[in-house]
Design a protein around this nucleic acid. Structure first.
Lengths: 100, 100
DNA sequence: GTAAAGTACTTTGTAATGCAAAGTAACATA
DNA sequence: TATGTTACTTTGCATTACAAAGTACTTTAC
């Protein structure tokens, strides 16, 4: 028996990044401050995790102004959604592994 | 919307510990060397992750001799199985979260 | 009987990661 | 002028992860 974890993704090993991706897959987009409130993290911490996901090209960023305030919105990319799904499948396989 | 990750368990955030628990939940017991081979990790690394799980009382250890060689077998504890299941439920909830 | 090998670690050292807090820039409002 | 807001970046420290080396005890090979 070999454990099928080939699609296990290091980018999702962290709880906050996992939550971010989950939110972005379930929602069309989410902005910085809403994410910050939802996940209850400091802005610096959130920014660094978002950047890590951006570096992997798992999310895309859209900066605009809402009224006169800057608003940064994040979206899961096609690549990100795919990687996230593979990661979840990988977890499922891990869970459903048969006895040896 | 609040994200339900109350049962997300730091002990299972690491890939190797997640694999170990998965193996021990799926199998009655597993010994050190088999785990080492299965997970393809160094013995030191494996020992430290096993110890972390033992510290949480998620696994139990049984030392004996197989023939004349020492054999250390690991089993998931009731507490460990429960925590693992809660962790998986937590992941499921995360995945199934509804749109806001 | 001495050397080599196996089991299951512990220790060591280093690199990577995670985090809060502070700092920053650009603009807005009072 | 000064205070607030957004969305960061930087800093510094603590935790974690890991390979590699070391250890103790035993067995097997020569």
């Amino acid at each position: 028996m070999k454990i099928a974890l080939s699609n296990f993704d290091k980018a999702f090993e962290n709880r906050i990044r996992l939550q971010i991706m989950s939110v972005l897959v379930a929602n069309d987009s989410y902005d910085f401050n809403s994410l910050k409130e939802l996940l209850d993290v400091t802005d610096g911490n959130l920014a660094s995790h978002l950047k890590a996901l951006e570096k992997e090209e798992y999310i895309t960023v859209n900066k605009s102004f809402l009224g006169r305030k800057p608003n940064t919105r994040y979206m899961a990319s096609v690549k990100g959604i795919s990687a996230f799904k593979k990661h979840l499948e990988s977890l499922e396989n891990l869970i459903k592994q048969q006895k040896s």
